[in-house]
Amino acid sequence: MSITLDKSSNTKISFEKLLENKQFQKLTPWLLPISVILLWELASRIGILSNRILPAPSSVIFTAIKLASTGELFVNLGISAGRAITGFIVGGGLGFSFGLLNGFSPVAEKLFDSSLQMLRTIPHLALIPLVILWFGIGDQARLFLVSLGVFFPIYLNTFHGIRSVDPGLIEMGRVYGLKTPQLLWDIIFPGALSSILVGVRYSLGIMWLSLIVAETIAADSGLGYMAMNAREFMQTDVVVLSIFIYSLLGKFADTAAKTLEEKFLEWNPNYRRA
Rank of each mutant, 00 (worst) to 15 (best):
W40E: 00
S2L: 12
S9E: 13
D139Q: 09
D166H: 05
L204S: 14
L183A: 11
L119Q: 03
E266S: 14
F62N: 07
T86E: 01
L119I: 10
L19E: 12
K258E: 08
V238D: 05
I61F: 11
G199W: 08
F24L: 05
V150F: 00
D186L: 11
K26F: 04
D186G: 07
L67M: 06
I162A: 14
N229T: 07
I245M: 02
S147C: 04
L193C: 04
L5M: 11
F88V: 00
P129A: 12
Y202W: 15
V75I: 09
L49V: 14
A219P: 11
V131Q: 00
Y225D: 10
I48N: 04
F135T: 01
I217G: 12
Q25V: 00
L178F: 15
N76G: 11
F244Q: 00
I196Q: 10
W40H: 03
A214R: 07
N157K: 10
L38G: 04
G222W: 08
V165R: 10
T255G: 05
S114R: 06
S14D: 10
A257D: 09
L183H: 09
K7V: 15
D186P: 04
V198D: 12
Y155F: 08
L32C: 07
W208V: 00
L183N: 10
D254W: 04
L127H: 08
P167V: 00
E261Q: 14
L260E: 05
S69E: 04
V165F: 09
G91Y: 00
I61C: 02
A214M: 13
K17Q: 12
P55Q: 03
L169F: 08
L260V: 09
I46W: 00
T63C: 06
H160K: 09
N229I: 08
M172C: 08
S164E: 09
S59H: 08
L67P: 01
W30P: 08
S8T: 13
I122N: 05
A56W: 01
A256M: 12
N157C: 08
L27D: 02
L111Q: 01
A230S: 09
H124F: 03
G138Q: 06
G136Q: 03
S59C: 02
S69G: 06
Y155K: 01
S14R: 15
A192R: 03
S50E: 14
I187P: 07
E41D: 10
T121W: 09
T259Q: 05
A192I: 03
L125C: 07
R45G: 01
F152E: 03
P123M: 02
T28L: 15
V131K: 00
Q117G: 07
M226S: 10
Y271V: 15
G136Y: 05
G103P: 03
N157Q: 10
V240W: 06
R52H: 15
N229A: 11
S221T: 13
T216M: 15
L67N: 00
L204R: 01
G173P: 13
D186A: 08
S58L: 13
T121V: 12
G93V: 03
G177D: 12
W267Q: 11
K66L: 04
N268P: 04
L260W: 10
Q182C: 07
L169G: 08
Y202D: 12
W40N: 03
V175M: 06
F244S: 11
S147H: 00
N51A: 09
T255V: 13
Y202T: 15
L223H: 06
G149M: 05
V90G: 02
E109W: 04
F151M: 14
